[in-house]
Simulated scan of single mutants.
Amino acid sequence: MAQNEGEVMLDRAIGLTDQNVNSSWCVSIDGLIAVGRRAAIFEAFTGEPIGTYNAAIGQSLNPEDGEGIATVGGFAEIWCKPVDCLVWHVGYGTDDPHNQDLGQILDNTGTPIAGQKARHAVDWTNWMWNVTDFFQLGFEVSRRETAYIAPRVSNEAMIYHFRSRLTI
C-alpha cells in the first residue's frame, strides 16, 4: 500500500505588537508505504512564517523587522511488528529555519542573547509492547539537538522515556 499527498496552506502570522501581519504559506508532502508487518512514513515541508504550526522551531516572525521566517524540514520513520504484540519504531526529524531570516534577540544593553533557534534535529527509537488488550508498556530513547544563532551555542540531550498505559 502506498499513499502520497501534498497540501498548500495559507494563513496569517501576526507580530506581538500587531504592527506586522504576514501571509503564511506551506507546501508539504506526506507518504506512507506499508508492506506486511513493516512500514515507512515521511513528511517534507517548506513554508513561511509557519511557527504557529510547530514548524521553524516555533518561530514565525523576525524580532527585528517583523518579516516572516522561512523554513524547511521533515521527518522519516520506519517501523516493524516482529510479533503481534510488539512494535518497533526508528526515526529522524529536522527543522531548519533560514538563518538570514531569524534576526537577533537583544537584551536591554544591545547584547545578543540566546533565543533564535537556527536548527533542531531529533532521532529516536522505541518499543511498544501490548501486554494485554488493555495494558501497554513502552520505552523510547531519543537524541535531540538545538542550535542557536546568538550567541552560538548548541544544546543536546538524550532522553529515556518509559511509559505504561491502561485502558478501560
Rank of each mutant, 00 (worst) to 15 (best):
G66K: 05
C85R: 12
R144Q: 09
Y92Q: 14
P112T: 14
S28H: 01
D18H: 05
T132R: 08
A121L: 10
K117M: 15
D123F: 13
Q136E: 07
T146S: 10
F135E: 02
L16K: 00
F139K: 05
T94G: 15
I41Q: 00
N126Y: 11
D18Q: 05
G138K: 03
Y92D: 09
W129T: 06
C85A: 12
Q59N: 07
F75V: 04
V90H: 10
N62H: 03
E64T: 03
T17L: 10
N108I: 15
R119Q: 11
G47V: 00
L61E: 04
G31P: 01
N22V: 03
P112V: 11
E64V: 07
V122D: 12
I113R: 09
L102V: 06
S23G: 03
V90P: 05
G36P: 01
N130T: 03
F135N: 02
P63R: 03
W88S: 14
D65M: 10
T17W: 04
C80R: 07
R37H: 09
N62M: 07
D123A: 15
W124Q: 05
L32K: 04
F45E: 00
A39K: 00
Q104N: 13
Q104T: 11
V122L: 14
D107F: 13
H89Q: 12
E145Q: 10
G31R: 00
A70I: 00
I105T: 08
A55L: 04
A39D: 05
P97N: 12
W127Q: 12
T17V: 04
S142R: 05
Q136D: 08
E140H: 05
N126W: 11
R38K: 11
I50T: 01
W124A: 10
H98R: 14
D96F: 14
G74Q: 08
T146N: 08
A114P: 11
Q136G: 08
L137R: 01
I113M: 13
N108F: 15
I149G: 06
W127E: 11
G15T: 04
G68Y: 02
C80A: 12
Q136P: 00
L106M: 12
W25Y: 03
G66M: 07
G103V: 04
E145A: 13
K117I: 07
L61A: 06
L106P: 06
G93E: 14
T52D: 06
E43L: 13
D96S: 15
P151N: 07
T17G: 03
A39L: 04
D123N: 09
N20T: 02
Y53K: 03
D133V: 12
G51V: 05
K117R: 12
I14K: 10
Y53F: 09
W127G: 14
F42N: 03
S24I: 01
C26P: 02
G73P: 07
Q104A: 15
T94A: 15
H89D: 11
C26A: 01
I14T: 00
E43F: 04
K81I: 15
R37D: 14
Y148L: 14
